[in-house]
Design a protein around this nucleic acid. Structure first.
Lengths: 226, 226
DNA sequence: TCAAAAGTGTTCTGGATACACCCATGA
DNA sequence: TCATGGGTGTATCCAGAACACTTTTGA
């Protein structure tokens, strides 16, 4: 911003600043998002994404990480800024500008309810109930972003455990994108990309054992996945 | 955000909220951005993108539109949210969280200095001088976004006048992307996409007259341009 | 007549898609 | 032995990239 008006800024009213975090994982054969129960205010009793106000002097991203850990126990997470929502009426109590983040974790186990805070629950992303504030809108943006990035980045690594089979990886893609992929083409593409390494161990199950793989690099990269 | 802490929010310190707008146009054979001179504060005398504080009760996007018109006279502009910058040290005077927007206008003529505000100047985007605050960082994000969207949307329409030749359109692409495009492939692609209509009039110049075209739809669409 | 931009089609190549059969295992 | 998912290769198609000559005009 420019200098104009800032001197009087400490006097002038400006909206509150908050963060909200949409956390996705794969569980029970579906893409799921973590919600917390709203305890106070007009929306009490409904569900919302975890978040909180950004204190003076803290980077919003740091707020997101801190609130995430405090409310859900989740840390070491893939986190990226999604978009900022600033409609004055999005929260009926006050004008709160919310910087939304979207996060990916490898499994539900990462989240542990913290009794100091509200109840936690994982919800399937398709068919979310009506959420507090404008959180259904935020959810829609987050899902759109996730689907898009699945196609041109390797961020799926942050949804996967340390080792997995190709079938499991393909299933994750299919669950999120909502469509079937051709198995041979999928595997061929992964082979060409060279982002996986075979572990030369196998997952035993009710059927033929499957080769276990791991990502060679667990950091965001742009790739032409689909 | 969740309800926690909001009751005490009006007491608690929270950052200020501002918007900054990166406005691009094509002029003098280059991609240019509009800057205003900073008049007050530690950054006085340097250049920055136009912007201002978001008042309580106003949508940040509305603030961007209003400030844009007030400071530069620009209205009816393509505007989209870019990203939010929240580093507490980005403005040395106070913690100001800035929601950055990026805008496209069809020509320099859109901007008229408003003497109530600071001086205006269009700068070529390659080789911008050091700007106030973190505005060089914002510029880099905006340019990256512009280049990306040029490839998969039709937003170039908002940089073009009502009528133009194919050569002029191609030049805009080349200036922004920083590389040459094959003329025959470029024209073929546009023909296939069907986003232009020939006006059956010609631009006369020092050489062979060129057919004039216009966009059939002047609204954002996703297309596979490149 | 010359310089400069406008206008136009075909070939080649690489990536995406579609597709079917055998294998290894536990039940 | 059977049901189930694991594992593999080839043919086709289409879009993107490469590429050169003729036309029209003003100077």
């Amino acid at each position: 911003m420019t200098a104009r008006g800032l001197r009087s800024a400490s006097l002038r009213k400006t909206p509150l600043v908050a963060v909200d975090v949409v956390i996705f994982t794969i569980g029970d054969g579906a893409l799921q998002a973590l919600l917390v129960e709203v305890k106070k205010g007009p929306a009490a009793g409904s569900w919302a994404f975890p978040g909180g106000l950004v204190p003076l002097g803290e980077t919003p991203e740091a707020t997101a990480i801190r609130e995430l850990r405090a409310q859900t126990g989740i840390s070491d997470v893939y986190l990226e800024q999604l978009r900022t929502f600033g409609d004055p009426k999005r929260d009926p109590r006050a004008h709160v500008v919310s910087i939304a983040y979207f996060a990916l974790v490898p499994g539900k186990g990462s989240a542990q309810p913290n009794d100091k805070y509200a109840r936690l629950c994982w919800f399937p992303v398709v068919g979310l109930p009506p959420l507090a504030y404008d959180h259904n809108l935020i959810a829609a943006h987050a899902l759109e972003r996730l689907r898009a990035k699945l196609e041109y980045t390797n961020i799926v690594y942050s949804l996967m455990p340390g080792e997995f089979t190709l079938g499991e990886l393909q299933e994750v893609y299919e669950l999120i994108l909502g469509r079937r992929l051709d198995r041979r083409n999928f595997r061929k593409k992964l082979h060409v990309l060279g982002i996986l390494k075979p572990l030369h161990r196998h997952r035993r199950g009710p059927h033929r054992p499957a080769q276990l793989y791991a990502f060679t690099r667990r950091e965001p990269m742009v790739i032409e996945m689909l």
